[in-house]
Design a protein around this nucleic acid. Structure first.
Length: 553
RNA sequence: GGCCCUAUGGAGAAGUGGCUUAACUCAUCGCCCUCUCAAGGCGACAUUCACGAGUUCGAAUCUCGUUAGGGUCACCA
């Protein structure tokens, strides 16, 4: 029995050939240098921060070369699949402005190189497998899990490399007649690729991030088609990236080890392998101080949803991830005042090959800078949109009086160097709740204590004088000048220098007076500019709070 | 364990044999400014590039070894 006859036995209904596929999926008509990249997630859960990192780079590389970025859904692992997660992945990508040009879009597909969902590509895989069988480079394997375990244990005993290869590849040595017989008898089987490699020999591989290096040839007869008829990753990768005409495969470094498999597959099929860029994994330090991959189970920041739900600006995360990708991005974006990040050119060679430790502090930095750039209307709209979805407490504050909320956020905002008080919307309600009478009263017992060096009488004296002598009708300059005068009249030093020169002759400094007033009005030591806080609160509320604190002392 | 990758401060890193007594960013800490809180300005933070040898007039940069960390060895991707 010939190999072709065996191929026909296994795939009687496959009549098309690889040539037909080549015609059906011709090379793309793209300008010189245009790169075709792809993000190929499996629908097994929420979008991981590492996946966002990878897809952002894929998207960027395609955009900056005027190429194509597409999404392909790798849904061949039916056991781990989570219904609806494919669509969710696309939606989350969209939030971060990583929008594909073609491919899988959740509820529909776009493009000439589809289908873009692997479970819909059975015919393509079967055509290629049939070809491989007919040229003697693939064969059915009837080994069961027990057989494989047995082989493995023998290999371990003999200290040999484990796996299905060479003499250990039992089913390699079956005759086609035996194969046909067992198939006809209904025995379950997988299809394995017949490797011609030898792990003693090395091949040179090129990685866009790491450069060239040597690695052992593949000699494993890997499974290309599982017993459920679906392809494995390695095989699907070769078929899909070839027929979808991917020029650059960008993926995590966990794939480096299987590069020899992929290269042998491409060679055997007579296809040009794509360029590869293996990205480092984003890490975190564990309890023992060891680096480990960001884990969805252990680290909240591993799920992109965390940033969305906590009210971070998506752009802030993207900017942070860009600095991990190309560290020169930081300087670039600072010089560009955080604008037009699309003009930045990403370089593979500048991507570090070591996994960076995820730095929340830096995400906060970007988020704070970005949030400070908006005017009051923009930031209010953004806060409201966020609150409506994720934060009832914040929504409640906004809905009490949107203009009031706007004024709170507008304190020292629309100016050359705006304040950078807020880093995300997630804790905004807590940050501003003292502006609201009810919240202020609710938290009255939790307020920050006054400086211990002042007695209740000192504080009362300061407060009653302030209340009587300070009017909010004056401008900021005059108001502070006035406060200074009151402070001096009560025995406080007008400035730090004076105080430092003779601390014993003063009760304190103007700063102490401002702190007393600040704690009285807000319950906190750190708040926006006191003058504007009072303007927003209004005279009535200010008077009430001062009187209330005086009476409670 | 085999194979592959990596190793510069608290974090991200620049650095490709002399320009480096190691850029820049975040964080931290100080000082200045100031009427408060921020912002801003200035400064501190690796005499040394995991360690050890070697090559060289000269090494963070090249070579070898050691150590440490990461990845990978599925009918998962």
């Amino acid at each position: 029995m010939t190999d072709i006859e065996l191929a026909n036995l296994i795939f009687p209904n496959i009549t098309k050939t690889i040539d037909d596929l080549e015609k059906r999926y011709p090379p793309r008509n793209l300008p010189e240098g245009a790169e075709v990249t792809r993000f190929a997630p499996s629908p097994t859960g929420f979008l991981h921060t590492g996946s966002l990192f990878t897809s952002m780079i894929c998207h960027k590389v395609a955009k900056q070369s005027k190429g194509v970025f597409y999404v392909r859904l790798e849904d061949t692992d039916t056991k781990r699949e989570i219904q609806g997660s494919g669509k969710q992945l696309i939606e989350q990508l969209k939030i971060f402005n990583v929008i594909p040009d073609e491919g899988y879009f959740g509820d529909h597909q776009v493009g000439d190189y589809g289908p873009y969902v692997q479970s819909e590509r059975a015919e393509i895989y079967n055509i290629v497998i049939k070809h491989l069988i007919s040229i003697g480079r693939a064969y059915p394997c009837f080994c069961k899990a027990e057989d494989l375990d047995f082989i493995r244990s023998k290999q371990e005993q003999a200290k040999l490399i484990p796996g299905y290869y060479g003499q250990f590849a039992k089913c390699r040595f079956l005759t086609n007649e035996e194969r046909a017989e067992r198939i006809k008898a209904g025995e379950p089987y997988v299809i394995r690729f017949k490797s011609s490699g030898n792990h003693v020999r090395k091949i040179r591989v090129k990685d866009l991030v790491r450069g060239e290096f040597e690695i052992a040839q593949n000699d494993q007869d890997i499974v290309i088609c599982k017993s459920d008829g679906l392809p494995t990753y390695h095989f699907a990768h070769a078929c899909d990236d070839h027929f979808m005409r991917t020029t650059t495969v960008i993926r995590g470094e966990e794939w480096i080890a299987s590069l020899p498999i992929h290269i042998e597959l491409f060679e055997t099929l007579g296809w040009k392998a794509p360029n590869y860029a293996h990205l480092p994994v984003i890490c975190k330090l564990d309890e023992e101080g060891h680096k480990r991959k960001l884990s969805k189970r252990l680290d909240s920041e591993a799920a992109v949803s965390y940033f969305i739900e906590d009210g971070y600006l998506p752009k802030a995360l993207i900017m942070y991830l860009m600095t991990i990708a190309n560290s020169n991005f930081e300087e670039w974006i600072l010089n560009n005042k955080f604008e037009n990040m699309d003009d930045f050119v990403l370089t593979f060679a500048k991507i570090s090959s070591e996994g960076a430790l995820f730095d929340m502090g830096k995400v906060n930095f970007f988020s704070r800078e970005l949030l400070a750039k908006f005017n009051k209307d923009e930031i209010t709209a953004l806060a409201k949109a966020y609150a409506e979805k994720y934060n009832p407490k914040l929504l409640d504050l906004i809905n009490k009086d949107e203009n009031y909320f706007k004024e709170i956020l507008n304190i020292e905002r629309e100016k050359e160097n705006p304040r950078k008080d807020y880093e995300k919307f997630g804790n905004l309600a807590d940050a501003i709740e003292f502006f609201y009478h009810d919240s202020y009263m609710d938290k009255i017992n939790e307020r920050c204590p006054f400086n211990e060096k002042f007695t209740a009488d000192d504080i009362k004296l300061v407060l009653s004088n302030m209340k009587d002598k300070l009017s909010l009708d004056q401008d900021e300059q005059s108001w502070f000048a006035n406060m200074k005068d009151v402070a001096v009249s009560l025995g406080f030093a007008a400035n730090n220098k004076e105080y430092k020169a003779a601390p014993e002759s003063f009760k304190g400094t103007v700063g102490d007076v401002a702190e007393i007033l600040r704690i009285t009005l807000t319950g906190r030591k750190n708040t926006p500019n006191l003058y504007y806080v009072m303007k927003v609160l209004g005279k009535e509320e200010v008077d009430f709070r001062i009187s209330y604190i005086i009476s409670s002392l």
